[in-house]
């Protein structure tokens, strides 16, 4: 009897097909969603045609996201990380693995050009988040940062948590919000951290949200495109009140937090007579 007969061939074929299907399913598993999209923003999956991203589009691991000079997007990942991508950017989700039972995982995201802000979720809390540019690698732990890469190199603005910026020349670690570093080239060491400049912060704030006339795909504004000259379009009244209440609470939190910071020492808690 031949070792390799038609029955064996059928079994092997089924096994290969099943493996391929399983692999495809793993590769195609959604890692997040496009939670806000300004055109033109495109997604490119390995081996597939370019697709235009819209609000609610699934994002998968190994997907490349490109924005036009007017485009921008926010990706919401399943571990609660958000990634704001600004205009003229090219970003690849190199790796994304998340275990919801243990709230741990690994994420590696490459910024080929442009600007993005990473607001860490569960993966970064366990130290598994890495951002890359052509000249540097940023390891983020439990934090937030903005990274921009242009022809002049990479600049990293640190907002919270801890970040280590490294390349073949050396590395620096930033633990303090409001500090930044820059890397001129792959063989140039990251600069010593220094206070972020106001223009750099203002630029990041302006680029990483909708521009004039854009609405991120949302429709609740209800009155058409906005420009910088049109009056503010109010949220629906119930949402306006909710947001107003949140601002008041947060403002009081900040005041109370200042009070907690400099709460008087427990002098006289036990005795004021020096005994």
């Amino acid at each position: 009897m031949p070792i390799f007969n038609s029955r064996t061939a059928a079994r092997i074929s089924a096994l290969l097909a099943g493996t391929a299907l399983f692999t495809l399913n793993v590769q195609a598993q959604s890692v997040g969603t496009a939670a806000a999209v300004n055109p033109t923003t495109e997604g490119v999956r390995p081996g597939q045609a370019i697709r235009v991203l819209r609000l609610g589009s699934d994002i998968i691991s190994n997907e490349r996201i490109n924005t036009s000079p007017q485009g921008s997007t926010q990706i919401l990942f399943v571990d609660k990380t958000t990634l704001n991508i600004g205009p003229g950017s090219s970003v690849v989700i190199d790796q994304y693995v998340f275990n919801p039972k243990t709230d741990t995982g690994q994420a590696a995201i490459t910024l080929g050009k442009g600007i993005m802000r990473f607001v860490g979720g569960e993966i970064s809390h366990s130290g598994g988040a890495t951002l890359k540019t052509p000249v540097a690698t940023v390891g983020i732990r439990g934090g937030m940062g903005t990274i921009e890469h242009t022809a002049d190199g990479t600049i990293y603005l640190h907002h919270y948590g801890s970040a280590t910026i490294s390349n073949s020349c050396g590395s620096v670690t930033i633990n303090r919000p409001g500090f930044s570093t820059s890397v001129g080239g792959p063989n140039q060491c990251p600069t010593d951290p220094e206070k972020s400049t106001k223009p750099a912060i203002d630029r990041a704030l302006a680029l990483l949200t909708s521009g004039p006339g854009q609405s991120g795909g949302g429709t609740f504004t209800g009155q058409g495109p906005q420009t910088i000259d049109t009056p503010t379009v109010d949220l629906p009244p119930d949402l306006q009140k909710d947001l107003d209440d949140l601002v008041r609470e947060a403002q009081q939190d900040v005041v109370t937090g200042d009070q907690h910071y400099d709460d008087p020492p427990p002098s006289c808690t036990f005795s004021c007579t020096g005994n």
Binding site: A35, H159, V247
Partner: peptide, 25 residues
């Protein structure tokens, strides 16, 4: 992103960053 002119959303973001010590943001 949906309403870049919404002032209370900007105020709330500013307060959240302030609570984290990111006073420049």
């Amino acid at each position: 992103f949906y309403n870049p002119s919404e002032p209370n959303a900007r105020l709330y973001l500013g307060l959240l960053y302030a609570k984290l010590g990111s006073n420049d943001m």
